[in-house]
Simulated assay, not measured.
Amino acid sequence: MLSLPEWKCPEWTLNASQVNTSSPEFTEEWQKRIRELQGTIMVASCVQMLLGFSGFIGFLMRFIGPLTIAPTISLVALPLFDPVSSEAGIHWGISAMTIFLIVLFSQYLKNIAVPVPAYGGEKKCHTSKFHLFQAFPVLLPLCISWFICFMLTVTNALPMDPSAYGYLARTDTKGNVLSRAPWFRFPYPGQWGLPTVSVAGVFGVIAAVISSMLESVGDYYACARLVGAPPPPKHAINRGIGIEGLGCLLAGAWGSGSGTTSYSENVGALGITKVRLPTWCPRTPHTHSAHAPS
């Protein structure tokens, strides 16, 4: 929606070093885009709630299968290649190292138990085996990569010129963000002003909602399979889609700039980390029949 010509950023906002982010003109430029997103998300979320709570998604389940979901998820993921490549291109060495560590920890070191200090039980202070790489296959590589970037920043191995390649890999480029952020902030509905609605924006977001619903159906089945649960019934899928629509309505009212949906990456993380809620199955007591002696 924001790629339409009417929402193209003005020329004077393209150079971040020459923009006063606290000026009323700049504030109005980004807030009016947020208000447009708010209105379109709220209207489109009503359509999603209608399709979910009415049971229409359950009716369509007979037509939704792997041949429908797989191309849809692929098409949804295609636009992500451009931002991913631009973000990773900040420093391809750091990006490649992070990807390598994630694959190494999640696929090859996941069964290796690392001794860690523990306390409790009869032994009090002792060491216990912990599958560190299986529990933190993504967080651990990110921490390692950040620490390496920090060391390269301290030693000035990374360039200090903002226009040089690799400058954005430094850990001090946005050091003032935390100092400028308020300690406490309470969001509320309409905090950016009265939401606005346009027909083009509504139809664009509805198209995204339809693809999101198809992706969510696939996520439900994939998540159930990973945790060893039976496939979700139609009424559960209807409720899930309806609740996602309700979440989008609240997100639009609060002005978050995006909706809420089930995330395929989280399902993938579930498969990598194997971290899930344990299921408890009560045991059925065995009954024994006693025969009286004749």
Rank of each mutant, 00 (worst) to 15 (best):
G245M: 13
I144Q: 07
D82L: 12
I237T: 05
W12N: 15
G39S: 03
T173A: 05
L80Y: 02
L51A: 12
H291Q: 09
A269I: 06
F136Y: 02
G255V: 05
G242K: 01
F133T: 10
L178R: 08
S145N: 01
I241S: 09
L250S: 03
P278W: 06
R276L: 13
I206T: 02
W192T: 03
E28Q: 04
F56D: 07
P79H: 08
A200W: 07
G166P: 00
S3F: 07
V197N: 04
F133A: 13
V76Q: 08
L168H: 03
K234F: 09
Y167S: 03
G259T: 09
L249I: 12
C125R: 06
M42R: 06
R185W: 05
W192M: 02
A70H: 12
I112E: 12
S289C: 02
P159G: 09
L250A: 12
L226R: 11
L51K: 05
N266C: 04
T40L: 09
L139F: 08
N15A: 09
I94E: 14
A118K: 11
I34G: 00
F133M: 13
I148C: 08
M49H: 06
F203W: 11
F133Q: 14
N111K: 11
G242S: 09
P117G: 13
D219G: 10
G259D: 14
